[in-house]
Nucleic acid binder design. Sequence first.
DNA 1: ATGAAAGCGCTAACAT
DNA 2: ATGTTAGCGCTTTCAT
Lengths: 329, 329
Amino acid sequence: MTAIPGNRKVTRKDVARYAGVSDAVVSYTLNGGAPVAPATAERVREAVRLLGYTPNASARALKLGSSHMIGVIVPDSTNPFWAELCRWVETVARSKGFAVLVLNANDSKAIRLEYLQTLASRQVDGVLLTGEIDALDVDRFNATGVRWAMLNQSTTIDGALGVGVDLAAGARDATAHLIWHGYTRIAFIGEMADARYGGWLSTLTEAGLAPGPLFDAKFTREGGYAAGQALAASHDSVDAVFVSSDMLASAVLRALHEADLAVPGEIAIASFDGSPESEYSWPALTTVRQPVQDLAAKAVAQLLHREQPPEDEQLLAGTLIVRQSCGCP
Amino acid sequence: MTAIPGNRKVTRKDVARYAGVSDAVVSYTLNGGAPVAPATAERVREAVRLLGYTPNASARALKLGSSHMIGVIVPDSTNPFWAELCRWVETVARSKGFAVLVLNANDSKAIRLEYLQTLASRQVDGVLLTGEIDALDVDRFNATGVRWAMLNQSTTIDGALGVGVDLAAGARDATAHLIWHGYTRIAFIGEMADARYGGWLSTLTEAGLAPGPLFDAKFTREGGYAAGQALAASHDSVDAVFVSSDMLASAVLRALHEADLAVPGEIAIASFDGSPESEYSWPALTTVRQPVQDLAAKAVAQLLHREQPPEDEQLLAGTLIVRQSCGCP
DNA sequence: ATGAAAGCGCTAACAT
DNA sequence: ATGTTAGCGCTTTCAT
């Protein structure tokens, strides 16, 4: 009497008939919409078990106007940092009964918007967005009618919910640590549009140090490798480098090793993210850990409970994890 | 007149009224269910645009009995190999109009089954499953009533759709390459339950070589690191090692470097997966690349088009990528 | 404590 | 070429 694949799907009506009650009572039993006599409830549960009944989420979503799903749009779920963040989002959302749709926007604003619309049509209850955002984007996002919030936003912007990590502060911590080590010619690898660039620059300036060379790199392994090679070529004028992401840094490491440059001996490194990968590179990376779990939890809470957090809680702090690539023992 | 957030959702009926046609015509225009006069179609499309209408996917799913979603259950989407595979699944599925729900089962069979049920209740059109599977599992999976197939299955099993990579053959290729280099004491790091273990073992035996030491390791970075340390401790009796995954291998690399052992000089390495990470480790890993894109495409096709492939196409071949960790220049 | 029935937004068979 | 309508499976109001 259990469900046999290929059989017609068993619906709530089947359960009702089998238990000798009305459809409503099944609903009451399952969702607690009204009191049900213990004996009846037991009969219903028994029928559910026997028939192998599972509620139809589409029907439920249609009726309730909520799919109990949220969407997340990241630049690249293959980047360990985003992978970890998405996994936390999934974990947090699941614990609240929500499923998660992850989409890759490939660093494209156009794709991000397109996917947001796709998600909207799928009736998701909210979407977590990543990447740069300006006032125009806010309007476009709002036009979809779907609730949204920024995940890991880099700058707070009016009318936009979201949490992020204080990238500039993190970069300052990392750079300051490098300076503390006594390095004076500290390079930068990453995107200049990124807040980490500003953090690096201001820290050097305030310390009275001339900013070291600057290697523009997209957030890809190829980009990191190329920047690493460029860095190796000019290693005479550099004794340390701040790299904007662990993924980039591990590729930089490879380029430096290839050029037979000792890390941290000839060039010290501090990077950003605190991804699992950073702990197992050689040497282990000194890095600014982003509080991914917290980020995920806060973002989901904002999205689902419409919690507008106080402004000063929209930027979380990263924590410097000191390992060996900076020169610490 | 465009959608303003907070407004009542605009439905197909609104579009119909605005365009001065019946609900059906809107459907015909959008889905091509029946011929529509060009002028009418244009009016409808105009209304859609003006009102910012997006079809309600829940209603559609309820009506059609298909949510146009599939699920994927992996052990750990944070592992670069799974991350890449999931991304391909998403890409392939998207191109066919399907969205993807990714769930992490944490290497637990119980969780895998639980999630399969969750997905079933969400009316997904199919689920891609990973990990070990036996006849009992097949029954349990079938009992959910949802269509499923194995993604990256290690062994074909009766009554189960799916594609996988010939792990044993891949491990043989890698081990053979190590032997070709002249190494004679070749260790193994990975899980013994895995087909790669058999491939490693048989290749050594057939070559008349005594199997080197064997370090059991779960597929985690911690596991790889511990195994690497054990390997380093017994490096006198080892000149090469086959590691079952890139993620493991990169942690092994770290342990070896820490022990000041030269790779490939003192211990050569060949590993498995061909993840992006493997190219940018130091030294770059010689590894067996799994055809992730092909895997994803074939699995999705089987799931969606109910294509039962010929038996000999259920196991795809990996390709050995020769880089430096094996001793090649 | 339980039942009857309306209606969520959509598609498709049938009628015109 | 276009309109009318039933019904997908569910929740929930209102009766009983």
